[in-house]
Amino acid sequence: MTTRTLAVVSAGLGVPSSTRLLADRLTTATVAALRERGEDATVEVVELREHARDLADAFVTGFPNAALRAAIETVTGADGVIAVTPVFTASYSGLFKSFADVLDRDALTGTPVLLAATAGTARHSLVLEHAMRPLFAYLRAVTVPTAVFAAAEDWAGGEGTSQELAGRITRAAGELADVVTGRPASARPADPFADVPSFEDLLRGNP
């Protein structure tokens, strides 16, 4: 059985957050859809709130530190990506955009991506189409047709989901699974700095 890697990017700020809750629902549904298609899955979650300072440092220095570099490699090396952001000021959050800004433009070329967003009201649902989809088109990712938006009223009884939201989650997860299983399993990208000697070795005269 082929094992696929799913990278889940959550830009929620709170703990817990509706953004992470939606990300978890989408992940569970996608893993189930992959298994229905005869493939297993491993899941790696990137919580962007844990990398807020790392992202700021990367903008100032021009280089990601080890923790942020690992998060970037998790996303760029995955067979499929689930990307979920809260809506701030009628668009994706600044934290979400900051992470997109540190990705190489070609790093997600051809990668299947499921887009999702959360907000307090359904009036922001078009963020998925006028903001998120163009962003990932610029990154040359392959976004699945169904994007999932969850407003406050979609969460029935806290962690439950409305019938409409559950249906969107199932449909989007199936679309992502279809695209992922139609592609060869990806390998982790090689680290271009893997063979670079450390600064300490250079000081010792060991090239």
Rank of each mutant, 00 (worst) to 15 (best):
M1R: 05
M1H: 06
T3D: 11
T3K: 09
A7P: 02
V9N: 02
A11T: 03
L13Q: 10
L13G: 09
V15Q: 13
P16N: 10
P16S: 08
P16R: 03
S17Q: 09
S18G: 05
R20V: 00
R20G: 05
D24L: 01
L26H: 04
T27G: 00
V31L: 05
A32F: 01
A33N: 02
R37E: 05
G38H: 02
G38V: 06
E39S: 15
V43M: 10
L48Q: 07
R49N: 02
E50I: 08
H51K: 03
D54G: 11
L55Y: 07
D57N: 12
T61F: 11
P64I: 11
N65M: 07
A67D: 15
L68G: 00
A71N: 04
V75L: 02
A78G: 10
P86I: 01
A90D: 14
Y92T: 09
S93E: 09
G94R: 09
S98L: 12
L108V: 04
T109C: 09
P112W: 12
V113H: 03
L114S: 08
L114E: 06
L114Y: 03
L115E: 03
A117C: 11
T118W: 00
A119Y: 04
A122M: 11
L126M: 14
L126N: 14
V127P: 03
L128R: 04
R133H: 06
R133E: 10
P134H: 13
F136K: 05
F136L: 06
A137V: 13
A137D: 15
A137C: 07
L139C: 12
V142P: 02
V142W: 10
V142A: 11
P145R: 03
F149P: 01
F149I: 07
A152K: 07
E153K: 12
W155M: 08
E159Q: 11
T161P: 00
T161C: 09
S162P: 01
S162F: 06
Q163P: 02
E164W: 03
A166G: 15
A166F: 00
R171G: 06
A173L: 04
A173Y: 03
E175L: 02
E175F: 04
L176A: 05
A177E: 12
V180R: 08
G182R: 08
R183L: 15
R183D: 04
P184K: 05
P184D: 08
R188P: 07
P189S: 08
A190S: 11
D191G: 09
F193G: 10
F193M: 15
A194T: 08
E200H: 10
E200P: 00
L203N: 11
L203D: 13
R204W: 07
N206W: 11
N206F: 08
